[in-house]
């Protein structure tokens, strides 16, 4: 059976609401290595979830620069 990135990501709790067809196509093309990394990061972040002011002061973005 072939690897299904969308299914694996959805099973780990990733949400694709609002993703357009091109974005979904790109996400579907994720490799197993990428999905494994994404899911392990998500699992760690979810277990350490604290109170984060989502949506507050949205224009204040950007902290890392190159």
């Amino acid at each position: 059976m072939s690897f299904d990135a969308l299914k694996e990501l959805a099973a780990a709790g990733h949400n694709f609401k609002g993703a357009n067809p091109q974005q979904l196509e790109a996400i579907s093309s994720l490799s197993q290595e990428e999905v494994t990394l994404l899911n392990s990061i998500k699992q760690r972040l979810d277990s350490a979830e604290d109170v984060v002011p989502h949506g507050v002061d949205a224009p204040l973005s950007g902290a890392f620069v190159w």
């Binding site: 994720l30 994404l38 984060v52």
Partner: peptide, 22 residues
């Protein structure tokens, strides 16, 4: 494709950024 992939994790970095600036 790269933007779509990174879009899955960027909200977390943006949230930490807002915690700093706020």
């Amino acid at each position: 494709a790269l933007r779509a992939k990174t879009g899955l994790l960027l909200p977390q970095l943006m949230a930490t950024t807002r915690r700093l600036w706020n």
